[in-house]
C-alpha cells in the first residue's frame, strides 16, 4: 500500500516535471482513442439502423385524395400479390396526421402548417418487401400506378450509410493504427525523459539494492496515467459529441436513429479506457526496456 502511494506520487512528480511533453503524449492518446471510439459508435449507429430496416424496410406510397376506399382496397390487394412484397399496411389521413404531429413535435413551424390545414397530410400505403434489396423494383412499379402521388423509400439512405461506413472504416482504422503507434512512441519518450531526469536517483537506488520493480513501477504508473487521461478525454469527447448529434437529429423525421444504447456506451467506453491504460503501459515498458540507466 505504502509502495503504491510512493509509485503514484513519484509518477505525478515526473509528469509535472515534463508537463509539456506529457501533454503531447496525452493528446496523441486522446486523438487516437477518440477516433477508435468514434468509429465504434458510428458503426453501432449504422448497425442499429440497418437492422431495423432490414427486418422492416418500408416503401411508402402517398396516395391521391381522389381515390375511393374501394380503389384503395384494390390497390392494396394488387400490391400484396407482387412477389417482392411481404406485407402492405394502409395508413389513413387521420392516422397520418397523428403520426405527423408526433414526428414534428420538436418543429413548431411545420407543426403549425399541418394543424391549420390537416388536408395536406396524405394517406399512404406502407410496404414491407420480402427482400430488402428489392425496394427499388417496388418503387418503380408503384410509380406507374394511377392514384399514387409520390413514392419514398428508406433504401437509398441505407445504401448511403453502409457505403459511408465501409469507406470510412478502412481509412479510420488505418489512421487509428498509425496514431496509436504515435501515441505509444510519445509516451515512451516522456518515460525516457523522466528516467533521464532521475538517473542519479536511479543509480543510488540500484547501489543500495532497491528492487527493479521498486525502481520501475513509478515509470509504469506514469505511462498508465498518461494513457488513462488520454482515454478519459476521448470517451468524454465521443459521449458528449454523440449527445449533441442526437439532439440535432431530434428535430428531423426519424427515418434514421442516431441514438446508441447506454449499455453499448458503458461497455465500449470501459474497454477504451482499458485500452488507454494498456497503450501507456506498452509505451513505458518499451522505454524502460531500452534505457541504459536501468540495465541490470
Amino acid at each position: 500500500m505504502n509502495r503504491a502511494v510512493y509509485a503514484i506520487r513519484e509518477a505525478f512528480t515526473n509528469i509535472s516535471r515534463n508537463a509539456l511533453v506529457v501533454l503531447g503524449a496525452v493528446l496523441a492518446v486522446f486523438i487516437s482513442l477518440s477516433l477508435t471510439f468514434g468509429i465504434l459508435v458510428f458503426g453501432e449507429i449504422v448497425r442499429v439502423n440497418t437492422t431495423t430496416w432490414a427486418n422492416d424496410v418500408r416503401v411508402i406510397a402517398f396516395l391521391s385524395d381522389d381515390l375511393t376506399p374501394a380503389e384503395i382496397d384494390g390497390l392494396q390487394r394488387e400490391v400484396r400479390y407482387w412477389p417482392e412484397v411481404r406485407d402492405v399496411f394502409f395508413v389513413s389521413k387521420a392516422e397520418a396526421l397523428e403520426e405527423a404531429k408526433e414526428l414534428l413535435a420538436s418543429n413548431p413551424a411545420a407543426l403549425q402548417v399541418i394543424l391549420e390545414s390537416p388536408d395536406v397530410v396524405p394517406a399512404s400505403i406502407r410496404i414491407q418487401p420480402s427482400d430488402p434489396k428489392d425496394y427499388e423494383q417496388i418503387v418503380l412499379r408503384l410509380r406507374g400506378i394511377p392514384g399514387v402521388d409520390k413514392v419514398v423509400s428508406a433504401g437509398p439512405a441505407i445504401d448511403a450509410m453502409i457505403g459511408v461506413r465501409d469507406g470510412l472504416r478502412i481509412l479510420f482504422w488505418f489512421a487509428t493504427a498509425a496514431l496509436t503507434v504515435a501515441a505509444i512512441a510519445l509516451i515512451a519518450n516522456t518515460i525516457h525523459m523522466a528516467v533521464y531526469a532521475r538517473r542519479e536517483e536511479i543509480e543510488i537506488m540500484r547501489l543500495v539494492g532497491a528492487s527493479n520493480w521498486f525502481i520501475r513501477t513509478p515509470f509504469l504508473v506514469e505511462g498508465a496515467i498518461e494513457g488513462l487521461v488520454g482515454a478519459v478525454l476521448a470517451v468524454t469527447f465521443v459521449v458528449v459529441g454523440h449527445r449533441l448529434l442526437v439532439d440535432r437529429f431530434a428535430g428531423l423525421p426519424q427515418w434514421i436513429d442516431v441514438s446508441v444504447s447506454n449499455g453499448f456506451m458503458l461497455q465500449w467506453g470501459a474497454l477504451v479506457l482499458l485500452f488507454g491504460v494498456v497503450t501507456g503501459l506498452i509505451g513505458s515498458s518499451l522505454s524502460l526496456a531500452v534505457h541504459r540507466h536501468l540495465r541490470a
Binding site: E200, R206, V208, G209, N212
Partner: peptide, 22 residues
C-alpha cells in the same frame, strides 16, 4: 541471477570519490 542482485547489494554499502549525493 540478475533479479537477485538487489539483495546482494543490500549487504554492501558503497562510498565513492564523487559522493553521489542527491
Amino acid at each position: 541471477p540478475n533479479w537477485k542482485v538487489p539483495h546482494l547489494r543490500r549487504s554492501i554499502g558503497t562510498v565513492f570519490q564523487d559522493f553521489k549525493l542527491l
